[in-house]
Design a binder for these strands. Structure first.
Lengths: 189, 189
DNA sequence: ACATACATGTAATCAGTTACATGATTAT
DNA sequence: ATAATCATGTAACTGATTACATGTATGT
């Protein structure tokens, strides 16, 4: 039941609407948790009912009204309690890896195309994370930021996401080239 | 709906019982898919009902009887169809990363302890994957195996898992040392 | 005696996804 | 005109987790 804690964490750096969360979940948070807008709206409603976040209505003219949420003291306490509970080892779920595991039994050309596509997506994520990290660091170098910056938490998780996607890109490229080489060898045999 | 395809893939290298699958899912498959025994038994039953796997009863004396499953032609066709569908980008779900993201608001000592523990777990996984890969390669070197080995699919996914866990271990170690340095600085301030 | 491995499930609940629904404003 | 952005949800369904249930054989 960590979605609520991911939401509380996302709200630590100020008030957000459900809509804003839905966006930021696809950038800073997406390395370790993912959620659809509907889930976030539902979770915010539950968190408010439980007194862990407080919402305030903001009336707008040119746009629909919105509700901005902040973490309450009870919410902060809940987050601290959560941080003390044991963590279960993480897991990945990846359709593409399932397909690669079945590489010996399925169409190679199609797999290669999907690996190339995924490598490109991962590359774009690497650049996005680099940008976010540069922005967060500001004037400071990485070592300095890690030592003295505010928001080490988010910075560390961005670092993790950056490495994951970089790793991902490299592996997809390699796997594609391995499959290409084997397909080529089969043809000339 | 990729659990069924993960199961079909796992059954590609020969017949397995639900019990055996439950074990092997925690090693070779665990880098990209995870499932509890109950899910596997249920999925095998569904796959059998759909004619994608065939089960045969094996009567044993000293142990309970078991059912061994193999992929049918229809199952193989389904796997090939699946391999042609577009893959949605993977995602990680990790409690510990949520906690690190909230690092600035929670107890540092506890987080550090969890990061150290996770680094050790990741290290053990790296060794396990190395062992499995050596076993799979046999006499061959890695480049040779990737070029000519049977089971490139499983080998490539083990490679991915190996790198993921290695990355994980490094990051956990670094994150812990960053948090330790900051905690130390706070104390002496 | 106690734990672990073997072997297979059911039932209840919780979490996540897909599909649907509404409606104004701004940019191309 | 068309698409994208802002803004928030409901309803139905599928997938995953937790708790429970059973029973034998082997190792420490």
């Amino acid at each position: 039941m960590a979605l609520r804690h991911a939401v509380l964490t996302a709200l630590l750096d100020g008030e957000h609407s459900g809509y804003q969360l839905a966006k930021s979940f696809d950038v800073g948070m997406a390395n370790f948790w993912h959620a659809l807008p509907q889930q976030l709206y539902a979770e915010l409603a539950k968190l408010e009912a439980d007194g862990l976040v407080a919402g305030r209505e903001v009336v707008q003219e040119a746009r629909p009204n919105k509700r901005l949420f902040t973490v309450t003291d009870a919410g902060l306490a809940e987050l601290r309690r959560f941080a003390r509970t044991p963590s279960k080892p993480s897991f990945i779920r990846d359709d593409l890896l399932v397909k690669v595991a079945a590489a010996d039994a399925v169409d190679a050309a199609e797999l290669i195309a999907q690996l190339d596509e995924r490598a490109a997506i991962a590359g774009a994520k690497v650049e996005l994370f680099d940008k976010l990290m540069r922005k967060m660091r500001g004037e400071l170098g990485e070592a300095e930021y890690l030592a003295h910056g505010t928001q080490v938490g988010p910075y560390l998780t961005l670092l993790r996401g950056r490495r994951f996607e970089s790793e991902n890109r490299e592996w997809c490229t390699e796997a594609a080239s391995v499959l290409r080489a084997r397909a080529g060898a089969d043809v000339t045999r």
